[in-house]
């Protein structure tokens, strides 16, 4: 097993096909409304008036695929009252379904919407990094399914060495909140955090049901 498992997203080649999202849902047999991996469509921009009376545009659009980032400082683990949310010896944040009381406090606390409530069983669920597949030497199902190889995974430090510092782009939350194990190659038109020109365009697709 790798030391600090992390996802890497090359947003320059991500086409937003959502195969990763569907693969995750299919492999984990997720109920309606549960999406451990979500692809956010983020876009914005407007016409800008120039001094000479002409207009230019700064329209942008890009996709970002996000699941649990198995953070170094997981706020869900800290906040969980029953210790159901925990980090295992391989650095994967997991939920002990026997302990989870379904209070949904982790859902409030996590800025990535990673823990999701399974209404039929009354407990929280989340990405487990396909740990059984990883132990078999395979990639997580979302990584396996990605047709453009935009999504991959590996050791966080290795990914940082390979792809550089983590990108601080919208609409991701500030990494200081949880220290996520997420490495991104940002698209050229990516907007920095705090930018107010963009909106998530597919809320029905990515928010809880």
């Amino acid at each position: 097993m790798i030391k600090t498992p992390a996802f890497f997203i090359d947003m320059q080649i991500c086409t937003g096909c959502k195969t990763c999202m569907v693969a995750c849902k299919d492999k984990n047999d997720l109920a309606q409304g549960l999406r451990w991996r979500r692809v956010y469509e983020f876009s914005g921009g407007d016409w800008i008036a120039s001094a000479d009376g002409t207009f230019t545009q700064d329209v942008f659009a890009y996709y970002i695929s996000v699941s649990c980032n198995h953070c170094q400082d997981p706020i869900c683990v800290e906040s969980c009252p029953s210790r159901a949310m925990h980090k295992n010896e391989y650095g994967i944040v997991l939920i002990d379904s026997k302990k989870c009381v379904g209070c949904r406090y982790c859902e409030w606390a996590c800025p990535y919407s990673a823990p999701q409530f399974d209404r039929s069983n009354g407990i929280m669920t989340k990405c487990d990094f396909c740990q059984t597949q990883i132990q078999e030497g395979r990639d997580p199902c979302c990584v396996e399914a990605c047709p453009t190889h935009a999504l991959s995974f590996g050791d966080y430090d290795d990914l940082i060495t390979l792809h550089g510092e983590k990108a601080l782009i919208a609409p991701l939350p500030f990494p200081e909140m949880t220290s996520p194990n997420l490495v991104i190659t940002a698209p050229k038109q990516a907007r920095s955090q705090g930018n107010t020109n963009g909106l998530i365009q597919n809320p029905e697709e990515v928010k809880d049901a």
Binding site: P81, S82, R83, A84, K98, K99, C100, V101, G102, C103, R104, F117, D118, R119, N121, G122, I123, M124
Partner: peptide, 10 residues
């Protein structure tokens, strides 16, 4: 709670 029977765990 989604699972009140486990409330003592909280």
């Amino acid at each position: 709670l989604g699972n009140p029977r486990k409330a003592p765990h909280a």
